[in-house]
């Protein structure tokens, strides 16, 4: 049951995007999400497509891999595409077939909006494909650091997140073992009425909770024994380094925003 779920989608490779600082990637994506809504004509959408595919090219992620798992999305895009084609009734009629009338504006809307959505998804999946979850966590912690002044527990939240990330594979193995042990005793997890399903999950949950708390206690004792005392003055094992290329990437997105602003109609 669990084998088919590869943990995360991160693809460790060697590329420009992989080497970027996770903070830079987070900043770039946030800016990109804001910028993408500026596009409203052929030229601006062209620039966006160019930017997106240049980023994908720079990440060396095979495009086939990127599109994999987006099949669910494909249907939504298709659905909204036709919704816009048939129900936007503005501009000139460019195509008539029986009762179906396609309007110029409708076709344009359909293409642009589907494209915007598609590009948004491509760029955000690029983040999870090129950055390991622990790096994203570190990046977020570092970006949220100024909030510490407002007594927002940034370090503690990042610590909990890192612990969760560290133990997901362990707990997955354990869940798998428990599932198999229960299935060997004749429990059916994937069929049956809702009530049966609710009952069958209890023997999975109890051992999971007990072992999670046991592990937590052991880890807490180990941390205390090693003198863990919170984030203050603590040095880091994984250091984030903001390099020239990170500034370059951030500038590129700002440039993209500028271009879209100038050329939008």
């Amino acid at each position: 049951m669990m084998e088919k779920m590869i943990f995360g989608r991160y693809l460790p490779m060697e590329s420009f995007v992989h080497r970027m600082d996770p903070r830079a990637k987070l900043v770039v994506i946030t800016l990109f999400i804001g910028v993408i809504f500026l596009a409203n004509n052929l030229l601006t959408y062209g620039i966006l497509v160019l930017f997106t595919f240049a980023s994908i090219f720079a990440s060396k992620i095979p495009i086939k891999f990127l599109l994999n798992g987006l099949s669910f999305l494909f249907w939504i895009i298709l659905f909204t595409f036709f919704l816009h084609i048939f129900f936007t009734r503005e501009g000139d009629v460019i195509f008539t077939f029986g009762w179906i009338k396609i309007y110029e504006h409708g076709l344009q809307q359909a293409i642009f909006i589907s494209l915007r959505f598609f590009l948004l998804v491509l760029i955000t999946s690029l983040l999870t494909l090129t950055t390991s979850p622990i790096d994203i966590t570190d990046g977020m912690e570092s970006l949220l650091n100024p909030l510490k002044k407002l007594r927002f527990p940034v370090h503690e939240l990042a610590l909990m997140m890192s612990i969760a990330l560290r133990f997901i594979p362990t707990l997955m193995d354990e869940t798998d073992k428990i599932l198999k042990a229960q299935m060997a005793r004749g429990v059916n997890f994937s069929e049956g009425s809702l009530k049966k399903r609710a009952q069958s999950v209890v023997p999975l949950l109890i051992p999971l909770f007990i072992s999670a708390f046991k592990r937590a206690e052991e880890l807490a004792i180990a941390m205390e024994a090693r003198g863990y005392r919170g984030g203050e003055g603590r040095t880091k094992y994984r250091l984030l380094k903001w390099k020239g290329m990170d500034t370059l990437a951030a500038l590129l997105v700002i440039l993209l925003g500028g271009l879209l602003y100038v050329f939008r109609s």
């Binding site: 909990m160 969760a164 997901i168 707990l171 999971l208 999670a212 708390f213 937590a216 880890l219």
Partner: peptide, 15 residues
């Protein structure tokens, strides 16, 4: 201990 347990339970919830 509470921090660690919250992290651990989050991992359980994720699974």
């Amino acid at each position: 201990k509470a921090f660690v347990s919250i992290g651990m339970l989050s991992a359980v919830a994720f699974v």
